[in-house]
Amino acid sequence: MYEFTYHRASGLRQATNLLTKFEDAKPIAGGQSLLPMMKFRLASPSNLVDLNKIEGLNGIELTSRALIIGAMARHAEVHTSPLVQQGIPALAALAGLIGDPAVRHRGTIGGSLANNDPTADYPAAALALGATIVTTKRKIAADEFFAGLFETVLEPDELITKVSFPLAKRAAYQKFRNPASRYAIVGVFVAKRPSEVRVAVTGAGSSGAFRLTAFEEALKSRFHPKSLEGLTVPAEGLASDIHASAEYRAHLIGVMARRAVAAANG
């Protein structure tokens, strides 16, 4: 790891000021992706601004309409929170599938969304549930938030403060994991909302998580796995690597989507 200067921010304003002041500064939340990337020298920020001591960023709140999760809530907290389990059980289950127990004690929802790893789980949930990402500057709809591999519309001095997930009538996440790394080869999150059905896919897109509008349309009239029978996903634009070809991923999307709908109908 290259040398850098460490700053411990005690508040959001101080954190954004530090990010403005130093070119090439990066915020660090749980650090479970950033620190390994820095060791591999895939990232080499000159300054790190630590968000871990900022108070009030890890709360979880359930209202009649939405589940609101603080950006610094750890995956373990989301997984075990009674409020998340009550409000959106599929989201609590998803958080328990991220990394391993020790990683889940450090990794955060805000960090995961800001990093936008194409195999991360939370981006699929944010897209399918129609989440709103609240930052130090604005509110961003999930549909507008992700901008390609490891890219989002966040500005360098902009920090996520919380994520608001509207409550869904039914939702489920099905993840086909790489057996070694446990990252998603394909993950599909389905959500039946009062006004629409959404289907979002992670792990498979060559430019990150995406929505599957053809599947959404098919499920709109009847939210049942049978509505997806015969539907296929083109392999073009899907990721292809040593773990799975684009064609295999395309096939898996159909399988995982049908399983997710079945699970949501419980």
Binding site: R8, G31, D50, H105
Partner: peptide
């Protein structure tokens, strides 16, 4: 793996300054 403030973490993926 060690415990930091009561929970298991991977001490290779945390800075010493973060354990202050």
């Amino acid at each position: 793996v060690v415990h930091v403030d009561g929970v298991a973490v991977k001490s290779c993926s945390m800075l010493a300054v973060q354990a202050d």
